[in-house]
Nucleic acid binder design. Sequence first.
DNA 1: TTGTAGGCGTTATCAA
DNA 2: TTGATAACGCCTACAA
Lengths: 337, 337
Amino acid sequence: MIDIAATIKDVAKYTGLSIATISKYINGGNVLEKNKILIEEAIKVLDFKVNEIARGLKTNKSMTIGVLIPSLENIFITSIISHIESILIQSGYSTIICDCKENRKLEQEKTEFLLSKMVDGIITMPYSNNGEHIKRVLEKNIPVVLLDRPLKDVNCDVVLVDNLNASYNAIEQLIIRGHKRIGIICGSKDVYTSQERLKGYLRVHEDYSIEIDPELIKYGDYQIDSGYRLLNELLDMESRPTAIYVTNYEMTLGAIMAINERGVSIPDELSIIGFDNIQMAKIVKPTLSIVVQPMQQIGETAANIMLKRLKGDMSNYPSMFRLKTEVLIRDSITSIV
Amino acid sequence: MIDIAATIKDVAKYTGLSIATISKYINGGNVLEKNKILIEEAIKVLDFKVNEIARGLKTNKSMTIGVLIPSLENIFITSIISHIESILIQSGYSTIICDCKENRKLEQEKTEFLLSKMVDGIITMPYSNNGEHIKRVLEKNIPVVLLDRPLKDVNCDVVLVDNLNASYNAIEQLIIRGHKRIGIICGSKDVYTSQERLKGYLRVHEDYSIEIDPELIKYGDYQIDSGYRLLNELLDMESRPTAIYVTNYEMTLGAIMAINERGVSIPDELSIIGFDNIQMAKIVKPTLSIVVQPMQQIGETAANIMLKRLKGDMSNYPSMFRLKTEVLIRDSITSIV
DNA sequence: TTGTAGGCGTTATCAA
DNA sequence: TTGATAACGCCTACAA
């Protein structure tokens, strides 16, 4: 039983060569062919693995990237992370994932935690609107990539989607089907994505010269309950909307629950467009039209820009990647006569 | 702009004390009150943080736990991870998450990767049935906790659910409602959880002296497609089952898609019980009865046993925690006349 | 091509 | 209580 990991020293001893030579070989240097064979043998026999911790101390790199997110119980986020990890590991980086559980204080603390772990960079989907914790990271010259939304006064790379046109395109599908009273269930007023998604709603109405009833604009908090509550509010209006657009996944879930509960007939009584999660869209009856975000592209873009910064390439800094969404039309919307 | 992190040396310089004293203080040693104040001040002013990498080199602990899973795009898994992380971070451990994307080779490689990162322990939901990679870890005296299923010939702590009785209880609910022809959509024959879930099905039939039609037992692969396909197969039988039990989340999704597509009336034509994911169960129409696994408890139990082993407490090694599931009865099942 | 030696930031031993 | 000093495992000039 090997219970103490072999070190370069052990390999040196085994081969009769010096530590320096082994180290050089490991890092791609040239050694005599016969020594190469010898070293390889020693490595195999001793089951030697470079101690990344020790290496990190010397190189001042931990080869780990911190990934700080508001929740791990969100398929949109974990899917992005999965793609981030795939890219990073190819370059030898590991990812330390910290979930701040939608809590500002935890977000703070976990940032410090990541710093103490000497991460080489941080990729984060910010929860708090206040970017002070990120500024501290940037001050230490540690690259940061923001996901999903930018942060006021924080100057760094950001990868997000074109939320405005995501909404624009979704609502447009309703408008060209004759809808004029379209309800929208937004997130909180102070959340960036929520603001953008509302802007798209407003702009497309303007472009088609459709008047907006402010009553049709509801503000929630991106949680299931608010989707449920606001969908009900919209249905309780004297002059009901003929279509409703729900601007995130959780609220879409809530909205569907309300619809099922009330027995509203989709799409005859009401057309509806939701957000994210293709699987969910397939199992509801009738199948749901949704806005889909390019999770893989988001993750890969974020990982790649991070890798670029890590290599010291600061060209086009800070960059903003504004990826395109897609509207999937299914059976939950129909034309109005 | 601070772009070089302060070290103990800097704190020593600032305070006029020695490195050793600062180190001792940091690690909870005693120093004179006035020095304590001075050190605190220096730490604050210099924004000093212990370099965990260097500490790790010295203490031979990385204070990180590897978490190796088959997929990050699975809410059941990520939810467990979230709870694991919550517990571990309280003890100063960070978690390096590796997703092997349901690929044996990757599972191998990522295990080696975690080893090279000098993780202090590994918590894994194994993908491969072959536990060789885990044995290698155990040989190095690195504690391992298995999630969801044990591994043949691998002797270590494991946290799973009582899959057998999960099925038993679910099927029992159907039996007491008069069902006698109950279909089951299993996972692959060589997957532990799948075997156990089938055993429960068999045992409850036996206990109620109900004969089993082998045709009613279908084997899939825990993926959406097989749920879809096998549900259709069951419905195409000459003598249809009156109820169907689907033994994991993905296959439940597929089954629902098939049901919707064929316009089968639930629960009148068919009663159905699915697996996992409460949210999903709420948005389908009618609401779905499901078996729910205690994700939080699984995560916390795994993290705690790991912490215990890390402290060197090997009492009751290896332990197996067999947690209880719950059957949630909703509108998708009914009594037979 | 190979080896010697110094240092990365910390901890821990042993004197003072 | 405090301090000098030797590791920890690795990398990297620089010398041989």
